[in-house]
């Protein structure tokens, strides 16, 4: 039944609102979460005039495990990180040794970027965390989007309000505005270059912009991504770091 409604929604703009927001969020969540994933991504950090660019290759399993290797720049090539539940391990080619990072160093941003591990790892689904209201339809980058106002269901959610522009075709939030409790805009997160990967839609480009501190943003471009990848157990182990 839902599928029929969906089909109708795609065909007839006026009926778009017939989709429940929960369903919409379900779709969005489905695109954004994964059981396993392998990807190659380029991250560019811009902060007060300086720009640094990194190329990383990573494996991820759910929210708990992630193994990442830096491929570029040359200086960082070979640096590997392993996150397993709450533990973080690092391998630096200049040292050639697996080192466990003690608890209190974990708070820092990755490579000096705007994204803390927390931001990346936040995996509670939007559907569970937010109540949404569709407030309109717009066109963004030539695509039709729903503008949805998400309000956090409880006070523990990181971003009390998100304004999201969901692409009607792919259910990817092309743009998000992340708000503080006070209503101040903290960050914007845009996604673009949407492609089909397996049974989902995925945005190959993301830009996170700090709206509080001027001239501070991070760009992420996926060079390749695959889901439901069979992952060897070994990938999430210190042995992988040493290879």
């Amino acid at each position: 039944m839902k599928l029929l409604l969906l089909a109708l929604a795609l065909a007839i703009p006026g009926i778009a609102r017939a989709i429940t927001v929960d369903d919409m969020l379900d779709h969005v969540d489905k695109n954004l979460t994964y059981d396993s994933r392998e990807s190659s991504v380029r991250m560019t950090v811009v902060k007060s005039g300086t720009t640094k660019s990194y190329l990383m290759h990573s494996f991820g399993r759910g929210a708990e495990e992630m193994a990442m290797e830096y491929l570029e720049p040359a200086r960082d090539k070979g640096t590997k990180m392993l996150k397993k539940n709450d533990e973080l391990w690092m391998w630096l080619p200049s040292v050639e040794k697996t080192q466990k990072i003690s608890g209190h160093m974990l708070r820092q941003g990755m490579m000096g970027s705007d994204m803390s591990y927390e931001d990346l790892m936040e995996q509670s689904t939007w559907r569970d965390a937010y109540t949404g209201t569709v407030v309109g339809e717009e066109t963004l980058d030539g695509r039709k989007v729903w503008k949805v106002d998400l309000k956090a269901k409880d006070t523990t959610v990181s971003y009390p309000r998100r304004l999201i522009w969901v692409d009607q075709a792919s259910y990817i939030p092309l743009k998000q505005e992340l708000y503080a409790l006070s209503g101040m805009l903290l960050k914007t997160w845009t996604m673009s270059d949407i492609r089909t990967v397996g049974d989902r839609q995925f945005a190959y480009k993301m830009v996170v912009e700090d709206k509080v501190q001027k001239n501070s943003r991070t760009e992420i471009t996926f060079e390749s991504v695959a889901f439901a990848v069979p992952l060897e157990e070994e990938v999430f182990s210190t042995r992988w770091l040493e290879r």
């Binding site: 006070t155 523990t156 990181s158 009390p160 503080a180 409790l181 006070s182 903290l186 509080v212």
Partner: peptide, 16 residues
Amino acid sequence: VIVEGRTRDGAHNALL
């Protein structure tokens, strides 16, 4: 200035 912090429950908040 803008002061950014987290509420007691962990939500982001910021005020001018």
